[in-house]
């Protein structure tokens, strides 16, 4: 285990069937072990009918066994822990801050510094939208703590491999042989 693994949480990505209950089945495997999921992002993938998930779980978690068990779920096409791979990972956050005539320009300055955009303005508040890794979001939130933060919401991390590699190589590529049906005793007609 490299130094990096020890401090970095696990980033796990999954390609799953877009069906009711799939999230429940996956999360159930983590729950059974008492593992906490730090963040979870789900949305459509490039293929119709398949969703893409990104999980972040604590670095101390024995993720390997759970990942294997999740991979067995019928609704899960593929899952992998990409913590030690070259990846791009981002999250988005919105922060609603109380403003007045006196501090509005300071807050806009801070937003600029973080390349955050202001997506909503009212006489008493602004909403900042920021994208980056968790550290960047944390840093912005930290700076804004001198002001009154009304709300913070974060999407959780989304991640993919760098370069042209496919994050979820489909089984067909790995293993040409198709399932032929089980020989006796458990044969299906």
């Amino acid at each position: 285990m490299s130094q990096r693994d020890k401090i970095q949480p696990h980033t796990i990505i999954a390609l799953v069937e877009d069906r009711p209950g799939v999230l429940n089945r996956i999360v159930s495997k983590w729950r059974q072990r008492g593992f906490n999921i730090e963040s979870l992002a789900v949305g459509h993938s490039e293929t119709a009918g398949l969703s893409r998930m990104t999980f972040v779980v604590d670095a101390n978690t024995d993720a390997e066994q759970v990942v294997k068990q999740v991979d067995k779920l019928v609704d899960v096409v593929n899952i992998r822990d990409i913590s030690t791979e070259e990846i791009v990972s981002r999250e988005m956050a919105m922060i609603k801050v109380r403003v007045d005539a006196g501090n509005r320009s300071h807050i806009i300055e801070i937003a600029d510094l973080f390349r955050a955009s202001i997506v909503d303005v009212s006489s008493e508040s602004v909403i900042l939208e920021v994208t980056g890794d968790e550290a960047k979001v944390d840093a912005l939130f930290e700076l804004l703590s001198d002001y009154t933060v009304i709300e913070l919401v974060r999407t959780g991390r989304v991640a993919m491999l760098r370069g042209s590699a496919v994050s979820h190589p489909r089984d067909e590529d790995e293993e040409p042989e198709r399932f032929q049906g089980f020989e006796p005793p458990y044969s299906v007609k």
Binding site: V16, E17, L73, V74, V77, N78, F179, Q180
Partner: peptide
């Protein structure tokens, strides 16, 4: 046809 289920046999 189950995309996420293909037990390996060999």
């Amino acid at each position: 046809e189950l995309k996420g289920y293909r037990p390996r046999l060999y």
